[in-house]
Design a protein around this nucleic acid. Structure first.
Length: 185
DNA sequence: CGTAAGATATTCT
DNA sequence: GAATATCTTACGT
């Protein structure tokens, strides 16, 4: 069951929660989403804070599209644009449980433990082959494949990671008990 | 086991 | 010129 565009019209927190347990594949490589973070419009920690710029243009585009950017000069991060009514909202995909194309991920990331293949935004992007070419790409078309979970997932919320502003806001969502998180709950 | 620091490039002030 | 939604490696305990 593909996730509809209406799903992404919701606010960032609802989308972040709803994505836990969904299956994400890019060009046949991917797995189950186990960790996300919400970045609301007007959030000081969000790239959209202070208005639209060239880099974050995709965040102000239509919902249900990808926003990809480079961080610290060497890592890519994958976001989903959401919240139709609040331009500048997005959800950061932080971790995925590898299910499909694991051999491809291993080839791209090197011979490391399976549980480390996608446990973090930069690792995930490298494993799935995300780069600037996917910035602004619609999530309901190739090479993306996004499938809603069959059953509701147990979700644990906590503070976001790696940011300096509004760090206490509990907008990090994890699949309870997953071994593929960037950090255990 | 833990904490600490370095690498690297695009973007904004 | 300074900052950044990170990862890896190194070293100490």
């Amino acid at each position: 069951m593909t996730i509809s565009r209406d799903f992404f019209a919701q606010d960032a927190v609802s989308v972040a929660r709803g994505l836990i347990g969904a299956e994400l594949c890019i060009d046949g490589v991917g797995g189950r989403i186990v960790e996300t973070e919400a970045y609301d419009a007007g959030d000081p920690a969000s790239h959209s804070f202070g208005g639209a710029t060239k880099r974050n243009a995709a965040m102000f585009g239509p919902v249900g599209h990808a926003y990809v950017y480079r961080i610290y000069g060497l890592h890519w991060c994958l976001n989903f644009v959401c919240a139709q009514d609040q331009p500048g909202s997005a959800v950061l995909i932080r971790a995925v449980e590898p299910l499909s194309g694991i051999d491809v991920m291993r080839a791209r990331r090197g011979a490391i433990a399976d549980r480390l293949l996608c446990s973090g935004p930069g690792r995930l992007a490298q494993a799935l082959g995300v780069d600037a070419a996917l910035d602004g790409a619609p999530l309901d078309q190739s090479p993306f494949a996004l499938t809603a979970p069959d059953t509701p997932s147990r979700i644990v919320a906590g503070p976001r990671i790696g940011i300096t502003k509004a760090a206490a806001t509990p907008w990090r969502f994890c699949l309870a008990g997953s071994r593929y998180l960037s950090k255990p709950v």
